[in-house]
Amino acid sequence: MTTEDSAEKVHYICQTYVAKPIKGSDQVSLQIGKQFQYTTAAQAQERAEREARSEDCAGADAYYVVEDAGSGEVSEPTFLVRVGDVPDMDAL
């Protein structure tokens, strides 16, 4: 086994949400809009803050996950910032 096989890789992600009307109701549901991957936490956080100000975006998350290169397993997300309307933590 090489060092690369046991290395961990961090993925920094900005994920946006859009509000979609629920048929037969006045309520809306949040659905994933776009996902962007970055090399730094700052880049992901800046994009989330910028996207959340957009008219067609209900909200955005910036988070990171850690991938074990050997097994392919990915950690639970660690949130850097949550802006606007975003799903409850339990819904993720």
Rank of each mutant, 00 (worst) to 15 (best):
V86F: 08
G72Q: 05
P87L: 00
V65K: 03
S25R: 03
V83R: 01
Q31H: 15
C14K: 07
E46G: 02
A52G: 15
V86P: 06
V81Q: 00
V65S: 04
A41Q: 07
Y12Q: 06
T2V: 03
S25H: 04
Y63V: 00
Y63A: 01
A7W: 08
I22K: 12
V28Y: 15
Y64H: 04
V81N: 06
H11N: 13
V65D: 02
R82H: 04
T16D: 08
G84W: 08
Q27K: 15
K34P: 11
F79K: 01
V28M: 14
S71T: 11
T40S: 15
A7G: 10
D26K: 10
R50H: 14
E49F: 09
D61L: 05
A19V: 06
A91F: 02
V66S: 03
T39V: 10
D5M: 09
G84D: 01
D88F: 04
R53G: 05
V65H: 04
A52M: 09
K20C: 09
Y17A: 02
Q45R: 11
P21S: 12
D56E: 13
E55M: 06
G24Y: 10
V18H: 12
G33E: 11
E55P: 12
K23H: 05
E46W: 08
T39L: 12
K20E: 13
C14L: 07
G24Q: 07
G59I: 12
E49M: 11
S25P: 03
D5Q: 11
P87I: 00
R82C: 03
F79G: 08
G70C: 05
A52Y: 06
I32W: 10
F79D: 06
V10M: 05
Q27G: 15
F79M: 05
E4K: 12
R53C: 14
M89S: 04
E46S: 13
V81D: 04
A44S: 01
R82Y: 03
G24K: 09
G24E: 09
A69Q: 13
P87D: 01
F36Y: 11
E67Q: 08
Q27H: 15
A52T: 07
K23Q: 07
D56H: 14
F36G: 01
D26P: 02
S25N: 02
K9P: 08
I32E: 14
D56C: 10
V74S: 06
Y63H: 02
I13S: 10
D56Q: 11
Y12K: 01
V10P: 04
